[in-house]
Simulated scan of single mutants.
Amino acid sequence: MRKIIAALVMSVDGFIEGPNGELDWVDNWEDPFELLPQIDTCILGGRMYPGYEQYWGAILANPQGTLPFTGKVASEGEVTYAHFAERTPHFVLSRTLDNVTWRNTQIVRDVEEIRRLKQQPGKDIHAVGGATLVCSLMNQRLIDELRLVVYPIILGGGKALFKDVKERRALTFLGAKPLKSGLVRLTYST
């Protein structure tokens, strides 16, 4: 059976966004998780999808242009990810979205559709986020692995990654890897 891997960036104090939704503390949105060779499908939540489409679509439209949300120019790794995302099937778990325009993307209405997707043949699946999606999948015991890149910053508030997980969950440590600029990737099985 395919694994679902939730891979997200977070602050030392466990937040994925600042108190006002700030993401300016994230250097770039490359693949620090080393997931691309391992996955062939992505899952997103309905709240995250519009920004995801806008960001990666902007890179595809103009790789040297100024990006939404960051005001920066895309890094080489972000351009690589944008091309990967363009050709990779995406499933958006949402009860409220009416349509999606990103190529190879479809809306699924129920977490049971994700369970069925996991049972299909293929490579592993990346649960891109956001926090509500990851918690929902964890509550249904559909997340098999967590890859967390921890930024050396304390935000002091914001959107907590695991605030909606309903029960205590012991994790099995699989490894830690120091990355550039003081980042650390932690990997756990659930």
Rank of each mutant, 00 (worst) to 15 (best):
G77A: 07
Q119S: 07
P19V: 11
N20A: 15
V26K: 03
G57M: 00
F91C: 00
F15E: 09
W56L: 00
A7K: 09
G18W: 10
D24A: 14
V79G: 01
L97C: 04
R141M: 06
R109D: 00
I114L: 07
W102H: 01
S94Q: 04
Y151N: 13
T80Q: 13
R116L: 02
M48C: 02
V165R: 12
I154E: 11
R185I: 07
N139Q: 08
Y151E: 13
V128N: 02
A74N: 03
L148C: 01
Y151S: 11
Q140T: 03
T88S: 06
D164V: 10
Y55K: 09
C135W: 03
F33L: 08
L67A: 09
K180T: 14
C42A: 13
G46R: 01
I16N: 10
P121K: 07
H83E: 12
A74V: 01
L186C: 06
D110I: 01
I143A: 08
G18F: 08
M10P: 10
T96A: 01
Q140V: 03
K163C: 08
P89D: 12
Q140H: 15
T70K: 04
V79E: 12
L174V: 09
G175H: 08
R109Q: 00
L155Q: 02
L35N: 07
I114V: 11
V184A: 06
L93F: 05
R2S: 12
I59Q: 04
L142M: 06
V165A: 14
E34S: 15
F162K: 02
I39N: 15
R169S: 05
V108W: 04
W29A: 14
A176M: 13
F69W: 06
Q119C: 02
N62K: 10
N139G: 03
A127P: 00
D40Q: 13
V128Y: 01
G157T: 04
W25N: 11
N28K: 14
S181P: 00
P50K: 04
A58K: 03
L161N: 09
L183P: 00
P121V: 03
R168Q: 12
R2W: 07
K3E: 09
R87V: 05
L23T: 14
E86G: 00
V128P: 11
D24F: 09
G46L: 03
D110Q: 11
R109W: 00
W56Y: 09
K180N: 13
Q38M: 10
W56A: 06
V111C: 02
A6V: 07
L44R: 01
G71D: 12
F162P: 12
G129F: 03
R115P: 02
R2D: 10
T101N: 13
G14K: 10
D40V: 13
C42N: 13
A176P: 13
M138I: 10
T132I: 03
V12R: 12
G77D: 08
L23P: 14
D27E: 15
R103N: 02
P121N: 07
T101R: 14
A61T: 07
D124T: 05
T172H: 14
P19C: 11
V184S: 07
S189G: 10
I153G: 08
A82T: 08
R141L: 13
E145H: 07
D13Y: 11
L8V: 13
D40C: 11
G65C: 05
D164F: 06
A127Q: 02
D24N: 15
P32M: 12
A7I: 08
I107G: 05
P152F: 04
G71N: 07
N28P: 02
G14P: 01
